Amino acid sequence: MPTPELPLTTSRLVLRPFVPEDAEALYKIQSREDVTKYLYWGPRTREEVRQVVADRMTFTTLNDVGDRIVLAVQLRATGELLGDVNLGLVSAEHRTGEIGYIFHPDHHGHGYANEAALEILRVGFEVIGLHRIVARLDADNTASANLAERLGMRKEAHFRKNEFVQGRWADEAVYALLAEEWKAR
Rank of each mutant, 00 (worst) to 15 (best):
L71D: 00
L147G: 04
A116V: 00
G111K: 04
G100C: 09
L118M: 14
E149W: 09
E115V: 05
L118N: 05
S144T: 10
L137Y: 04
R136Q: 13
A117P: 08
N86W: 12
L89C: 01
V70N: 03
A148R: 12
A77S: 13
H131D: 07
V134G: 09
L121R: 14
H131I: 11
I69H: 04
L87F: 04
H110M: 14
V90H: 05
G83Y: 01
A113R: 10
T78L: 12
A145K: 13
R76P: 04
G88D: 07
G152E: 12
S144R: 10
G129I: 06
I120C: 12
Q74P: 02
A113V: 05
A139K: 02
A145N: 05
V90Q: 10
D64V: 03
Q74E: 02
R150A: 08
L87D: 13
R95K: 13
L75F: 03
L137G: 11
Y101C: 05
L81E: 01
A145D: 05
A77D: 12
N146L: 13
V134H: 07
G66Y: 00
V123Y: 05
V65E: 14
L81D: 01
A72H: 03
D140Y: 09
Q74S: 03
H94P: 05
R132L: 10
Y101T: 09
D84P: 03
G79F: 00
T142Q: 14
N146T: 11
D140K: 15
F125S: 04
V90A: 11
L130S: 10
I133Q: 12
G124D: 01
S144P: 07
V123D: 01
G124P: 06
I69F: 06
E126G: 02
A139L: 03
V85Y: 04
I120W: 13
G83T: 00
I99R: 02
I102H: 11
T96A: 08
A135R: 10
V70Y: 00
L81S: 01
L137D: 06
V65L: 08
R150Q: 12
D67Q: 01
V127M: 12
F103N: 14
A135L: 15
A117T: 14
R132E: 06
A143Q: 12
F103A: 14
A135T: 08
G129D: 02
L82M: 09
R95W: 06
A92I: 05
I133E: 09
R76L: 08
L130R: 10
I128N: 04
N141T: 10
I133K: 11
L75S: 03
V127H: 11
I99G: 06
D84V: 04
T78I: 12
H108C: 14
H94F: 09
F103G: 14
H104G: 15
P105I: 15
G97A: 00
V85M: 06
V134K: 07
I128K: 06
G83A: 07
